[in-house]
């Protein structure tokens, strides 16, 4: 009897050891699994950039008469990490569109758009009265671009990372940088005395 109890106990412990659990979490909870670039940093940067731009008078004056059209260039990732900088610019772009103050063009979809317009206008399969006409695209007024720089230092017990995100808005006609903003982030990961 005692052997059976021990066997059942051991089986239960093994089964418990193999169990897994999936839980939904707060997407905006502070993420500190590692000191590497994470979701909290992305949200911080996007929030700061949008707030800065929407409160910068010279640019906002441009939005009074018409909504400027913006072209988003890539963010240069100068850190040693693999970071999807497009996720940052996507967040910024989404919030600027929702502000109702800016419009954006999508350079990465030009080929697909051209293919669809060729189909509508040249295939003979689409009623010409309903076909979207070519040659009416609106050119961008401003170009958004920037850099993400990082400095990482470490010793046996500590890892210190510093990120600096810089975003600029260039007037394509005049070549003038109309707006720029920076966001700095510092994170330190320390190993505790007993490695816990």
């Amino acid at each position: 009897m005692r052997t059976l109890t021990l066997a059942l106990l051991a089986l239960a412990m093994m089964a418990g050891g193999c169990s897994s659990k999936v839980e939904y979490g707060d997407a905006q909870a502070r993420e500190t699994v590692t000191a590497d670039f994470g979701s909290t940093d992305l949200q911080e940067i996007a929030g700061k950039m949008v707030d800065d731009l929407l409160s910068f008078d010279p640019v906002m004056k441009m939005t009074r008469e018409q909504r400027p059209v913006v072209f988003v260039d890539r963010i240069n990732n100068k850190t040693t990490e693999h970071i999807d900088t497009e996720a940052v610019t996507d967040s910024i772009q989404t919030r600027l569109i929702q502000s109702g103050k800016f419009r954006f063009v999508e350079p990465s979809k030009r080929e697909q758009v051209r293919r669809e317009l060729n189909y509508q206008n040249e295939s003979g399969e689409v009623n010409p009265e309903t076909a979207t006409r070519m040659g009416n695209k609106i050119g961008a007024d401003l170009m958004m671009y920037g850099n993400l720089a990082g400095i990482t230092k470490r010793d046996d017990n500590t890892k210190d990372v510093y990120y600096k995100f810089t975003l600029k808005l260039l007037n394509l006609e005049t070549g003038i940088i109309e707006w720029a903003s920076e966001k700095e982030i510092r994170k330190t990961r320390s190993r505790s005395l007993f490695g816990l």
Partner: peptide
Amino acid sequence: TWRQLVLPGSNEANVQGVAPNS
């Protein structure tokens, strides 16, 4: 989004925000 703030002891900080639309 939730923004981070580290406020030293006995200190003040200004937090600012701009409305997402009009």
